[in-house]
Design a protein around this nucleic acid. Structure first.
Lengths: 206, 206, 206, 206
DNA sequence: CAATAATCGAGACGGTACGTCTTGTCTTCCT
DNA sequence: AGGAAGACAAGACGTACCGTCTCGATTATTG
């Protein structure tokens, strides 16, 4: 590449008028996530978000079509921070697996649990939302785990003695099942246990 | 007194007033489940249920405190019908496992998918609802699968080479994950695949 | 008259089944009047009457088409008691006038004020009710006062120096105006004052 | 600063947010009065008013606590228009009386009859409403008539041969009585008749 | 430095579901 | 057959939130 890309796409179109308030944007995202975790997804309300953020209601509607989009952006912002953890590579495949699971579990235990579950529920009857969720939150993590396992197989560390897709389903499925049903915690111990079972199932020695 | 029925159970407490309309009850339950599956849990409305059932709104409120209770009773009613399938006993443990999973998967594919997911989402911020869900829909199936596996162990058909609870989590977790994310179907093939993996994991021969 | 009239009209048609409960009837009428005066006509409710009377709601509907009819019958029952006072004849016309007014004022001050006003208000948009009210409560008193005045004229005690109808309107109009507006009491003093003015207006000497 | 308006009255308190819709306000008041006269006070409903005015139900509740307040404001608005007629001064006292009565009678014959009667009935069991009615609709007219009569006395045109309060009661009482009972019209003829009687009663010559 | 223009907080707008209440009818058992 | 109880369909109540709109005030760029 020779020099600073000649700016492909439309000319910058100098923005006129008052610029968007970054502080309002942040306040909305934070209030949304906090209220969702505190009061529950069902009781999350645009009015509530706006009031908690000290922002006019129209300011929310101006930038996000619906409350689902507010939450999605909030989740995406959180996920960006840990983009790195999505692609661990310690050299040992199963250690990578455990790291990914542990990072994911930690996130859902924290500020995003109710939001994730609520969004998933809404997505049942809203294909567009379903796609957005897959594209930003669910799919990437699923792909990341699958990639780690495939790399393990290609490295000869793992033997594909069961469909890798099913192995991924087992791992994240257990997480979701426990998130929903809460019959057992979603913590580091679970990450270790799942990793152990995968070691047994997929070990090359027999 | 010679005969005069020894009156087992509670005193008859003669019911006064017009008896509850069984047809209204059924119409409400059926309309609720149907609307939930058609329009989505979020768009399910007491007014909508009542109108669809050709019933006054008060008749719904008289018998169910909230729309969650309507759905719960509808699910319970469906589940009762298949009570038998919860306790399969073909002699072969893994066949029993597959049967239970298949029956469960069929139910969720049909009329109960959206309802289950929506209820689960609401239960995140409603402990009482969470308990009811566990007691009537989630818990019993979980216990049933665990009981089958334990029986297999005690019969010597299975070796507990992994925590049985985790095996149960794998099976139902995968179901929930796919119900939510819909990256793959929840069908008989899945039941077979899961059973196969469990056979490998828990087989006595090594 | 020879003997007991041979009973013209339909044969007595021996009433079959349980006879109407007189106690229930009385309880309904009394509760209606009491509740109306206590809580106000607007808050009077069929359910409230039935509950206060310890009576089923249907028992009210069986015998009275609407709450207005309950009140009308209650008023009629009260009025019957003082039927006599409607036709005073002391020999002195203006004394008769004062007696009639005083008796009427006493009644409205007591248990019937709210009921009368409420019924009148309802009758504005209900011609049938208006007729019933005229026939049973309003009209007879109006006619009675007019008859007394006419008798006074025919006896030569009064000179019809103003339309007698207007004199009647003055007397009862003042009562209604004060009942509604309550800017002054509707009592014996008022009866006396009105009578005095009529004496001045209609006296024969000049 | 030389002038800078000494800011009389309260500080301007800059109104924030979208200003109240004057057209909605008018539509509500007009619909309320029209429906009340058409369907009757008892059948007047907030929902009905809102629908007829093409207005959201909340818009009614936002500005008026109850349907009585809607009607009161409607009556006040009508009365304001004829504020002038409350204080006629033709030089001849009894002409003034007739003018005031005629103006008042005309108003009640038109759009306000049912509303006035219904409000009066409700006011029987609602002291607050009673005060409002007195303050805005009933009292001022009463005071106006009394003032005219007193002026006549002080001018020597009338002799107070009966309590002036009672004269006022006769005039407006007759109006109310006929409004309620409808045994005779409330029209210009009545105004004339009443004025004639007052002339006889209160004339200075004897 | 004024004009232009988009955003901001605020809050009213027409709608609609909420959960409660009363209406008038009905359906049961009991007297 | 009447009465007490109470469920039924209907529909108004007053509240909350929806998504849209219209204010005055603020904060940028542009001429």
């Amino acid at each position: 590449m020779s020099a600073a890309a000649p700016s492909p796409g439309p000319p910058p179109t100098a923005p006129r008028g008052r610029p968007r308030s970054e502080s309002a944007r942040r306040a909305v995202l934070e209030s949304a996530l906090r209220l969702c975790q505190q009061e529950g997804y069902q009781h999350l309300t645009i009015k509530g978000i706006a009031d908690a953020a000290g922002v006019g209601r129209q300011t929310v509607y101006r930038w996000w079509p619906a409350k689902t989009d507010v939450l999605l952006e909030a989740l995406r912002a959180l996920a960006e921070v840990e983009e790195a953890r999505l692609r661990p590579d310690t050299g040992d495949t199963l250690t990578d697996v455990e790291r990914l699971l542990d990072a994911t579990f930690t996130l859902t235990r924290g500020t995003t649990g109710h939001a994730l579950v609520g969004l998933m529920a809404d997505a049942q009857a809203d294909g567009e939302l379903a796609e957005k969720l897959q594209g930003t939150v669910i799919g990437p993590r699923r792909d990341a785990l699958r990639a780690i396992l495939e790399r393990g197989v290609s490295r000869g560390e793992l033997a594909p003695r069961m469909p890798l897709d099913l192995a991924v389903d087992f791992a994240f499925g257990t997480m979701w099942y426990r998130l929903l049903s809460r019959h057992a915690p979603v913590d580091g111990a679970l990450a270790r246990q799942i990793t152990e079972v995968l070691r047994t199932m997929l070990s090359v020695e027999r």
